[in-house]
Amino acid sequence: MPNATSVFAPQRLSLVTAGLIVALAVSGCTQLRGRQGYVVDPVLTAAIAPGVDNRESVEKTLGRPTFVGQFSDNEYYYVSRETRQLAFANPRPVSQQVLRVRFDPAGNVVAVDKTGLELVSKISPEGDKTPTLGRHRSFFDDIFGNIGAVGAAGMGGNTGGNTGP
């Protein structure tokens, strides 16, 4: 009579192999999470009030801004973004918050605005070729297209005018 462990050994080996393959496949498809920029604390951001706070109190409460306004230093921006990506794919934004704190010339808070993911634009480049208006020329047209065209008029020959006596 054959041994019971020797009959089930090939089946057990194939199950272990299949389990390892599934584990490797699933581990390659894991989702990576990323956080960029300012770490938002809802209590601290809600504490900033127009007419009460000034530039110094905002910096003490929220820290230094992510960036200051481009045309005026009377705007502070705090940017926070959370992204997700699968294994080797490009990361995609899941949530974003931009907190804009505006100051008057004296440095007092005038307004606090919050925006989210609704302002994120997805830009899809056109690949390796930029579409242009005009003629579509091939590689050989670009190289050989000007042969005979450069200097054709006025080469010392007859220009179509009066040829003389």
Rank of each mutant, 00 (worst) to 15 (best):
54 N>A: 02
165 P>Y: 00
26 V>A: 07
68 V>L: 02
9 A>F: 13
12 R>A: 15
17 T>R: 09
40 V>L: 11
45 T>D: 09
68 V>K: 03
29 C>E: 05
34 G>I: 08
33 R>N: 12
140 F>C: 06
99 L>I: 12
138 S>A: 14
23 A>F: 14
153 A>V: 15
8 F>E: 01
97 Q>K: 11
126 E>Y: 10
120 V>F: 00
92 R>T: 15
54 N>K: 00
99 L>Q: 07
75 E>Q: 12
79 V>W: 00
121 S>K: 14
37 G>T: 09
115 T>V: 15
70 Q>C: 03
74 N>S: 09
124 S>W: 11
5 T>L: 09
4 A>W: 14
165 P>M: 03
104 D>G: 09
55 R>P: 01
50 P>Q: 05
72 S>P: 06
31 Q>F: 03
97 Q>G: 02
115 T>Y: 00
79 V>F: 02
45 T>L: 05
43 V>Y: 10
61 T>W: 01
68 V>T: 11
38 Y>N: 04
64 R>H: 10
40 V>T: 12
41 D>C: 12
147 I>W: 11
149 A>S: 11
3 N>Y: 06
160 G>T: 01
52 V>M: 06
21 I>E: 09
56 E>H: 01
3 N>S: 10
50 P>K: 02
100 R>F: 00
58 V>E: 00
104 D>Q: 07
144 F>K: 11
126 E>R: 14
103 F>Y: 01
19 G>S: 10
52 V>K: 07
114 K>Q: 15
158 N>I: 05
30 T>K: 08
136 H>D: 14
54 N>G: 09
165 P>E: 07
4 A>F: 11
3 N>G: 11
137 R>S: 13
47 A>V: 04
136 H>L: 15
155 M>F: 09
36 Q>W: 10
6 S>W: 14
149 A>F: 13
160 G>M: 01
19 G>N: 06
25 A>I: 07
83 T>N: 10
124 S>F: 15
125 P>S: 08
82 E>D: 15
27 S>C: 03
134 G>L: 04
68 V>F: 03
28 G>C: 03
23 A>E: 04
21 I>D: 05
110 V>H: 00
150 V>R: 00
133 L>F: 13
18 A>S: 15
43 V>D: 14
46 A>T: 08
34 G>S: 07
109 V>F: 00
77 Y>F: 15
80 S>L: 01
109 V>K: 00
80 S>I: 06
105 P>N: 06
12 R>Y: 08
38 Y>S: 08
82 E>W: 08
159 T>L: 08
144 F>C: 13
82 E>V: 12
36 Q>V: 10
28 G>K: 04
27 S>V: 04
70 Q>V: 12
155 M>G: 14
24 L>V: 13
132 T>P: 04
82 E>Y: 09
74 N>A: 07
52 V>E: 02
161 G>N: 04
109 V>Q: 01
125 P>V: 04
50 P>L: 05
30 T>R: 13
11 Q>W: 15
